[in-house]
Amino acid sequence: MAVRPNENFLITQLDWLANFVRANSLWPMPFATACCGIELMATASSRYDLARFGSEAIRFSPRQCDLMIVAGRVVMKMVPVMQRIWLQMPEPKWCISMGACASSGGVFDTYAVVQGIDRFIPVDVYVPGCPPRPEQLIRAVLDIQEKVKRQGTLLGREFEERKAPERPRPLALELAPSEKIVAPGSVRTATQEWDVN
């Protein structure tokens, strides 16, 4: 008489396998804006060689990636772009906030710089430093791997049909049109203005 494993047992095992595979083949999407982007390039090139940890497949298209590395400060004009890219990435996905500027604004406590990207998108791992050394970024990638192996995607939303629109939600406050800050400019540009309604 064969032992029929119950439903729970089977799913746990598949999860373990899926998480193992996901963790060791993270594809980073470099959202490199400033100085940290150069350190990101240094991490991927000869001396530090991110390929040793299975994350060398850097793709610039958000559709192919599952790890967004925000490297550098994010300013007013860039926030909607960052949110759009984050929403375009398929589930499951993770985010590394690389450097002091992305994590907290760093030395740039000015009118234009967002004081931490975690105010606007979810972040999994923060890397301190200005900019962090490549070793620190590699450590962060390892931390993400550990996190993926341990908890996977808790909600399993990658199996659901996608409902969220691939663009940021309208502003929380209702503002007059003149007060809205619309990022990719509106003067005869390639993209349309956000559809606020």
């Binding site: 007013m76 606007f120 503002l175």
Partner: peptide
């Protein structure tokens, strides 16, 4: 102005 943007939760 720097914080007048929508928030995307997990």
């Amino acid at each position: 102005e720097r914080h007048n943007f929508p928030v995307i939760p997990r």
